[in-house]
Simulated scan of single mutants.
Amino acid sequence: MDFSNKYVVVTGGTGALGAAVVAGLLRGGAHCIVPYRAELEAQRFAHRGDPNVTMIAVGDLADETQVARVYASPGAAPLWASIHIAGGFAPGNVADTDKAALMTQLNGNLVSCFLCCRAAVNAMRAGRQGGRVVNVASRQALEWRSGAGMAAYTIAKSGVATLTTTLAEEVVREGILVNAVAPSIMDTGANRAAMPQADFNAWPKVEEVAATILFLASPENKVTRGAVVPVYGKV
């Protein structure tokens, strides 16, 4: 897919899925703006030092000031696409989840996504060229009962799905298409270590999930909006 001369923000870009998305964007000719939290993750990032990658240290994407700094960076304008992969997972039954744990999931997954969507849409409006927003929800956001035992995470990701569909309606007439993907368990080193007895072949590969994200973020996507696309693999 052709992203020549397109500027794209990728939150969570230093993670397994994010790195696969950034790789695809770079192959297509994009310039990527990648916020990161920890210096160690930046040092391990395969695309660090690429002339078409701008890395920005950000402590908390649930902080409006820090999000504004990402989207005001010189490399972020004119913005074509914003892909929101940053988030976190923690299991927990409702009875065992206190307010602090709930807010951690809401801030890390939903509030951060909301603020990045807001900043992205405003940047795209300023550029007057339309654009694309792609969020990352989860299977639990579409199949609520599967979220038993991970209630706070499921609530947060369900909010991301709702945000996606409502925002899509708000901005479509401006040429901005908003969509999301909903992965199941992805085949990453961390997930293999956490679930060594699982059937890894059934899990979607990060490159496969990235391919769906890249299409939704691309100029080739001319009609898809408000979708929360299942990317479950064989699970």
Rank of each mutant, 00 (worst) to 15 (best):
G12S: 12
A151Y: 03
V21L: 12
R27N: 12
A38D: 12
D98V: 13
E39F: 10
E41Y: 08
A210M: 11
P91S: 10
C32M: 02
V160A: 04
F89H: 14
P91F: 10
A193C: 04
V70L: 09
V21K: 12
G28W: 10
K99C: 06
F215V: 08
G18D: 03
R44Q: 15
A193M: 06
E170L: 05
V171I: 07
T11R: 05
T165Q: 08
Q43W: 01
L40H: 11
Q105P: 05
L79C: 06
A72L: 05
V34Y: 02
Y7P: 00
A62G: 13
E39Q: 15
L17C: 05
R37Y: 14
R27G: 05
T188W: 07
N93S: 11
E207H: 02
R37S: 09
N107H: 14
T188H: 08
M103T: 08
T162N: 09
K222Q: 15
A198P: 00
I56Q: 03
T104W: 10
T165A: 04
Y7R: 13
V229Q: 03
A76M: 07
A19D: 13
A19K: 01
A20V: 05
N179I: 03
H84A: 10
G75M: 04
R225S: 15
N109K: 04
Q129H: 13
D187L: 07
S184W: 12
I33N: 00
N52H: 14
D50L: 02
A90I: 08
Y153S: 07
N122S: 10
V111D: 00
I33H: 01
V58M: 06
M103V: 11
A23E: 14
A57R: 14
M103P: 00
V133E: 08
A161N: 03
A30R: 04
S218T: 12
P51Q: 08
A38P: 00
M55S: 13
L167D: 01
S218W: 12
I155D: 00
P230S: 06
G24F: 08
V235D: 01
E39A: 15
L25E: 11
V8C: 10
L106Q: 05
E174Q: 15
A42G: 03
G226F: 06
A90W: 05
I33V: 15
A198Q: 09
V10H: 07
A23G: 13
G88M: 13
L110D: 00
I33P: 01
P91N: 10
A168K: 04
L214C: 08
V8I: 14
T54P: 05
E39G: 11
A180N: 01
N52I: 00
G49M: 09
